[in-house]
Amino acid sequence: MVLAASAGFVPDRPDLGHRAEGVDLADPAFFADSLDPGAPRLLPPAAYRALAFAELEDDAVWTCSWLTIGLGAEISSPGDLLPFTAGHHGLHVQREGDGGLVGRFNKAQHGGCRAVPLQCRTGTKTRCSFTACGYSRDGTVLPAGRDGPTPAMHQYLGLRPERLLPVAVRAWGPLVRINLDPGAVPPEAPPEGLAALAAETRRAEFACNWKLALQALAEGERFSETSDSLHLTGRLATGEAAAIAVHFPNLVLIEARGKTCAVMLQPTALGQTLLRIGLLGSDDAEPADRETSRESSWEASWEASWIAWQAEIAARMAPAVAAQAALSGAANAAGLWLQQRIAARVRARPAITDTQPLFATAQGRGC
């Protein structure tokens, strides 16, 4: 029996399968035509527009991978909190008093709602006053107050944050990575010699699915790969040489102009992707370097660097927006690699043998 979506009932039931547009999205045959190295193509359109495929990705990718969510420098003080919604799950990372990091599921996974409203089950992150909801859009970093957690943090922390479900978290060089599985094997080693050039990330949003966004950002010639990363050579829109690295599933590093632009992808809708962008540089460039020059001169140079990188990202993303409109065409080297990884994760999911729901609501009981 297939359960119809209704207000107050959560229809994502992996034991019922993931079907849309008349096909089984988890069937290896769904991926087959798109994984030919000789003629790589985009996945079928359902992979970029069907809520069922987003739920399959939640099951196979977002809940069992090392996700990159921001810069460690963004939460430098004890108590600072960095939110990130992974798939349908509201999470956060907080700086501890000893300088370490702790990751947790948010206290209010569904905001103040007793159940997930139907309008939140559309594949689009909603703008909601309950900002810790797993279906709402993330806010920015929450700095700690003088006396500890602020009222705005309550939706994340509750009264006893130590009782919240833990999330694995690692300081990965200057970046922060999380895994919803607290027992996950640590990620591969980060690139050496990188540090955040400033304690900020900037955001840009584009009208395309996250898979198309990653493919466009990582345009280049395949150079080498590991189990969870792909390395390419390419050129910027200005013609300058660039080294590009993709770390599955949502981090692209573009090295050029003496800096490394870190782009972290986060789906905000089936056809919408938010980019969290940070600038990295050599770890021997101390913050004190700014103080040796005039502040106004440094700020002008820093802003010019941001403008150049934002223009580069916008140029790279233009083909992704066009591809979202067409939902057909060839996959580049990064796109093929990503599709291969997703297909492998789907195949590797544990088989579901128990069909008993793990939860029930007033409308769900008896189904």
Rank of each mutant, 00 (worst) to 15 (best):
A29Q: 14
D80C: 10
V346W: 01
I244Y: 03
E205V: 13
S282T: 03
P44W: 00
V23C: 11
L232Y: 10
W306V: 06
F31H: 04
S129E: 04
G134S: 01
A29C: 09
V346K: 01
I277Y: 01
S129L: 08
R121H: 13
W302N: 08
P319D: 14
P149V: 07
L16Y: 06
G17N: 09
A323R: 02
P190T: 03
T68H: 15
Q339N: 10
L159V: 07
A311W: 07
G79S: 13
F130Q: 02
D283V: 05
H154K: 08
A318Y: 00
F223D: 02
N332R: 07
V167S: 09
R127F: 13
R19S: 13
Y156C: 01
A198G: 12
V2S: 12
R160C: 07
L275P: 00
G258E: 02
A199R: 13
A330F: 01
S136I: 05
P117Q: 11
D284G: 08
E240T: 09
A343Q: 04
D283H: 15
E225W: 05
I342D: 05
G278W: 03
G134C: 07
V176H: 05
T268W: 05
R13I: 02
C120G: 08
M153V: 06
S296H: 12
P28I: 00
